[in-house]
């Protein structure tokens, strides 16, 4: 099993619903977020292009955050999801520094927090909160080992890219272009 997410940049309108749905679902304190939206502009008026991306932890196969964690708090679980065991995290911040995607933040309660692909929801057959709420249905989640999963199907159909592939982390967040 290999969980992954695809983000359709052609449909995303950057509304940030993924952000607020994640914040309420996961009780992320106000002022912090586990996912965010990026807008990239190119060109000169009126020859313009824009890409909008909903971003979050890439749940890398080769995750520097897991490697550098001194206590083992950062770890993998089933499906390759990178998790943080709050009780084992000492808040040293090594993982924050190591992440090429800046996906982690220091939770005010003293540990480091980040996207979990809503592991508590997917265990119960639901999709992550961001995916479930997205009004444009631009987020596709599922198991790459299952050829019929939403994410497998859309990655077969469409061209995609990953972010900072040169970091060699083998990210599992795919951007449809």
């Amino acid at each position: 099993m290999r969980y992954a997410m695809a983000v359709d940049t052609r449909k995303c309108v950057g509304c940030s619903d993924c952000v607020v749905a994640c914040q309420t679902e996961n009780k992320v304190p106000i002022g912090f977020c586990r996912d965010w939206v990026v807008e990239v502009m190119d060109g000169t008026y009126p020859q313009l292009e824009m890409e909008i991306r909903s971003e979050r932890c890439n749940h890398c196969e080769n995750a520097p955050c897991v490697r550098c964690c001194p206590t083992g708090a950062s770890h993998f679980v089933e499906g390759g999801i990178v998790m943080v065991e709050h009780s084992q995290c000492i808040g040293c911040g090594a993982c924050i520094a190591s992440c090429p995607y800046d996906a982690r933040y220091p939770h005010p309660d003293g540990y480091v927090d980040k996207c979990t692909f809503c592991e508590h929801r997917i265990k119960n057959g639901l999709t992550p909160a961001c995916t479930a709420v997205c009004p444009t249905k631009c987020l596709y989640f599922g198991d790459l080992d299952d050829p019929n999963s939403d994410v497998s199907v859309v990655l077969k159909k469409r061209k995609y890219k990953t972010l900072i592939p040169e970091a060699g982390t083998s990210p599992q967040l795919y951007f449809l272009i």
Partner: peptide, 28 residues
């Protein structure tokens, strides 16, 4: 359920993947 990998690269992941324990069967 923790699975630790070191900097082994993608090949090792496939091996590791076989060692995943089923946390809970997905609900119908």
């Amino acid at each position: 359920d923790f699975i630790r990998i070191s900097a082994l690269g993608a090949g090792a992941i496939a091996v590791g993947a076989g060692a995943f324990k089923v946390v809970k069967a997905l609900s119908s």
